[in-house]
Amino acid sequence: MEDKTYLFSPLSQAEKEAAFEHTAYAPQVSYWKDAWVRLKQNKPALFGLTTLILLIFMAIIGPFLSQYTYYETHLSLKNDPPSSAFWFGTDELGRDLFTRCWWGARISLFVGISASLIDLVIGVFFGAVAGLLGGKIEEWMMRFADVLYAIPYLLVVILLMVVIGSGILTIILALTITGWINMARIVRSQILQIKQQDYVRAAFALGASRRRVLLQHLIPNAMGPIIVTLTLTIPSAIFAEAFLSFLGLGVQAPIASWGTMANDGLPALRYYPWRLFFPATFISLTMLSFNLLGDGLRDAFDPRLKK
């Protein structure tokens, strides 16, 4: 039984702080750090990220691992199943599928990522200008985008490919003609939201030029959705390239992309399935990884999910 005088004597400020410091609320974490922590907890997203890193790694060093080039033919060994000599088998001209797959990886990934990056640049520029300037200019810009958006994307791409002829640069060009619209819309809606924040108004009130506000406040704060959209545009660009190749509009032989390899492998599906199997799996795996990563990023950046 403790002494009553002791129990009921006043508590000093120092003693209070000592007793209760552990009950204070946790310190605020920065936006980016918090997002990264959340992303790390998302297992499917991590799977996607590691798979992508592996795929990119193999795209770079894969062709060097085997003793063959992507164009040498071994006509007596054509359509061979996977073996210790040819790890993924051979195609109808006896070319090593392993090497070709990783060359194809380079092409497909290059086309997908560069088309998306170009979409990013055009889209961010367009969306930011529209969102920032507002008024009639914005209205006409978005109407232009609406009309363009209503046109079936792949049809236009197919038409362009027929006219221009196939080739890596033309595929990238065709993909970027209307691919930027989605990014532009997202950027514009983000800008519109951020523009209303008090710190932006404060910046204008302090005399900052529109360009400065755009570069210093608007775009950095819209980065979250921009990154997510970029990550999710890449798989649709890769899909589009594979699809075009499947229709016969892909890169020219002997260069191969995963799409053209799948197209070549289709007629031989019944008897030599590995010719379709390997490129098809890699296309799917790449798209899956980007989608998982994109989903994870979207959840990680979502302010509503903050505790």
């Binding site: 009921f8 004597s9 508590l11 209070k16 702080e17 209760f20």
Partner: peptide, 13 residues
């Protein structure tokens, strides 16, 4: 309420 209280005593903690 102890940490914010002006009448806090040892027993309160």
């Amino acid at each position: 309420f102890c940490a914010r209280c002006h009448h806090a005593m040892r027993i309160c903690a």
